[in-house]
Nucleic acid binder design. Structure first.
Lengths: 250, 250
DNA sequence: CAAAGTTGTCTATTTTTCTAGACAACTTGT
DNA sequence: ACAAGTTGTCTAGAAAAATAGACAACTTTG
């Protein structure tokens, strides 16, 4: 009965409980609700968001499933923890030595796939490849069984021929580059964006569909400026923050 | 009829067309689909995502509403543009001088609200406020009529007493600090995360509910290390990427 | 000009989500 | 012990989303 402009959708593609759950997640994430706090009751949330109590309860159930909150019958629903890992981005960023500030944060990596192929134009330009082939390596990284990020690495195939096999063997890009005789490299540019995870990313990072990924695009170069690796990483935004390393002032 | 574990929700809170739209947005964003390209037909998308053609069409309609694609009857649906702005983060990051690489990117700011209040514990600690009050200023920034970010700024009320009025008057944090006799400051730490926009943020940034924001938390300090401003900015992820400035190697 | 393929629009139906109300099970404070 | 407030569970119905099919309007290709 509600007439609307043709082509105008009536909803925004998010169910009511999902929007409520995300709103609560923000309050937990930014400290308005701290671990141990009791969150508003189902009745209160229903009034606040103008939905039925059942709908509000579904939002809570979703957060409970993520172990972000815990409901106790008769007493209320309480914030558990807010475990976000921190990934440092700086001059000598390597995936292997980041993810610190964690008790036992030993990150392990896996090569999912590697391929020799013609690089897309923008990547060829960044790596200064003129007509040659590139190696694309797909990786994923874990800490404590938990998938943290997936990465797409591009290398000039002529510059580092055996890179894919070396990464596969050593489980580390840094070690693989060392095997090719490259002992030092620095990050020359990084840019950060965010978007919804694709279905593939969601499955690799064990996220629900529609979860958010932080996307970093970075270029690593030799100290002399020769581009070495172009890297696109996707982090589960629910679980990581990126910490940017600013230079010291002396 | 489908029996499921108690408490297990049947859906993920995202409608089918929303997930398809986000998947297509990624393909446009990362260059698999470039401006001018024809995207897969409604029929093809329906088959690929195993939904009805009407559902696939709704995903296209959502992207068309954002002017990301344009449908032409009889011929197909085509990618228009992919206008993302770049915000630079570095040692001397200021909102006013960022958003470059744009033809005429003159950012303008507005103070939405300011308040003298007792700061939350974590913010008091970062600003090294011991029991005193803090000034919280809420701002928003525009480029070309388009809202780009909203910010929450915290200052030590004793250190910079008239800051709120100065920001309101000058429309710029840098200018307001200069009015308080502070002529130079540097960024000492920045961290980046991403999450869904709250309803308030969505309305301020003219985003649909459930859109994604890039959240940066930053601390600005005087050259001697005295903390000056704690700043939480939220950028519309659809429209901006953050570009991290790495130090030159000399 | 005709055929094939595309987007746009309409009706009808099924499936899922949200609402509504009631009450049980449990906890907390008086 | 009791009252008030909370979460958990059930039934039923209304509203919205997704499916299904048909066909019109239009473009492109042969």
């Amino acid at each position: 009965m509600t007439d609307r402009l043709p082509g105008t959708r009536v909803s925004n593609g998010y169910s009511a409980w999902r929007l409520i759950a995300e709103e609560l997640r923000v309050e937990i994430g930014d400290g308005r609700l701290s671990p141990g706090d009791r969150i508003p009751t189902g009745k209160t949330l229903a009034e606040r968001f103008k939905v039925n109590r059942h709908t509000a309860r579904q939002a809570i159930a979703a957060l409970a499933e993520e172990r972000l909150v815990e409901s106790r019958r008769g007493s209320g629903t309480f914030v558990l923890g807010d475990a976000v890992r921190v990934h440092r981005i700086g001059l000598r960023t390597r995936l292997s030595n980041s993810l610190h500030e964690q008790p036992s944060a030993s990150a392990t990596g896996r090569v999912l796939h590697s391929e020799l192929e013609n690089p897309p134009a923008d990547i060829a330009e960044r790596l200064r490849i003129n007509g040659g082939k590139a190696v694309r390596v797909e990786t994923s990284r874990f800490t404590g069984g938990q998938a943290i990020s997936v990465g797409t690495h591009w290398f000039d195939a002529e510059r580092v021929p055996g890179i894919a096999a070396d990464i596969e063997r050593t489980g580390s890009v840094t070690a693989a580059l060392a095997a090719s005789g490259i002992k030092d490299y620095v990050r020359t540019s990084t840019s950060v964006g965010a978007r919804h995870a694709t279905a593939l990313e969601a499955s690799l990072l064990s996220l629900g569909p529609g979860a958010i990924v932080l996307v970093t695009e970075a270029l690593d170069s030799l100290p002399d400026g020769t581009p070495l690796q172009y890297l696109v990483s996707r982090f589960a935004a629910q679980r990581v923050r990126l910490d940017i390393e600013h230079p010291r002032i002396d």
